[in-house]
Amino acid sequence: MIRVLHRAEAIPAVLLVLAIAAGAMLSPYFLDTGYLLGSSRIYVETGLVSLGMTFVIVSGNIDLSVGSSVALTAGVVAKLLSIGMPVGWAWPAGIAFGALLGVFNGIVVSKLRLSSVLVTLATMAIYRGVAEVLLGPASIRLPTDFASFGNATAFGTPVPYSLILLALMAAASAVLLGRTVLGRWIYSVGTNERAAVFSGVPSGRVVTLSFILSGAFAGMGGLLVAARLGVARFDSAKGMELDAITAVVLGGASIFGGSGSILGTALALLVLAVLRIGMGVANVTQEYQLAVIGTLLVVAVAVGAIFQRPGSTD
């Protein structure tokens, strides 16, 4: 029992129980399965993005451009569909485009050895700016046979397809990060890049690959946003990087790299989803919700930093 509590995932697990209890006390509708599943669609997008963010943060970097990548991918796919791309190509095209945005981040960070905070701050503006130039203030409609996926549920159950997609992707990510050589390399680069290089890890390629994963997941998130809303707008998914980073850090990942897990991220995502749905039920407005999430992020990191002071790294 004690050993279980010492695991990094214990904090989000305990928070999850507390959040569900609080939500259930606040509103009788909260524990309604149909309602919870219906609302889950919104968090699936953040969830996919958080999976990608986990790889980047474990490798010792950060990706602030994910929200913009979501919006830009949605915009590009909408444009391509409007000039006649078959609907069946939307998914591969969107994921590939998101990955391409990640390639750019990864190459600039790893080849030029620049801080990922500043590089992705710049690409956050660039990707958002390209989306703004591409789409303008208008929203671009998506064909209904593409958008229908956003609201479809599986096999007559109330479980949305998008939730199943997230579960599959989370499982795949958990295997990739926890059970493969690439996963070990990501941890080793995040723990000590020099040591990793000396032991033969291609650190530049590992970092680039983690950004590619982040970009591809953001692309997937963009497709889901577009499918759910039925339109693409340049200003969608603003601030999604905050939710994603919060999920990863709350899930027990160190922001300095080298630790964290997909299980932790998944648990923290549930905490955030429950919190957001709960606040939504209690009619808490969007700005207040942001304030709560922001505070939660800071407190989570501060508590973590106090419990595991990096003695020698400073």
Partner: peptide, 10 residues
């Protein structure tokens, strides 16, 4: 970056 990203929203 984490502290001020949090306070940006807060």
């Amino acid at each position: 970056i984490i502290a001020t990203l949090g306070t940006l929203s807060a």
